[in-house]
């Protein structure tokens, strides 16, 4: 789905492990035309959930702050922290 409008973002979700986190995040992204390109998740010491996800927001009508709100409300009450960043930040910080 590489297009001219392509805009890569990075999403991190961290918190207490429970059933359905990936499903809820993926559903919320799909509903807003955000394409998932890479996803990785792990559970640490039995109950700490961490997921990192790269996605393309180019086809979505939402900007990052609004998408953050959508994800926050999708995961409301689950004790999870969601962070969204333009992927350029990581490009700058981790690649020379």
């Amino acid at each position: 789905m590489e297009t001219d409008k392509s805009k890569k973002i990075v999403i991190a979700v961290i918190g207490r492990d429970q059933v359905g986190i990936v499903a809820k995040v993926a559903t919320a992204l799909a509903e807003n035309q955000v394409n998932i390109e890479d996803i990785s998740q792990k559970v640490f010491s039995g109950d700490i959930f961490a997921m990192t996800l790269m996605a393309d927001i180019g086809a979505s009508t939402l900007d990052l702050p609004t998408l953050t709100q959508r994800l926050d409300s999708a995961l409301d009450g689950m004790g999870l922290k969601v962070a969204l960043h333009d992927a350029e930040l990581f490009q700058y910080m981790h690649r020379v």
Binding site: K8, V10, A12, I14, D38, S40, K42, A50, T52, M54, K81, A83, H85, A87, E88, L89, F90, Q91, M93, H94, R95
Partner: peptide
Amino acid sequence: MANFTSDEIIETVGMIAS
């Protein structure tokens, strides 16, 4: 744009969050 490892992402998120 290159893909980033989970460690890199978690490191940056941790730098900002905590």
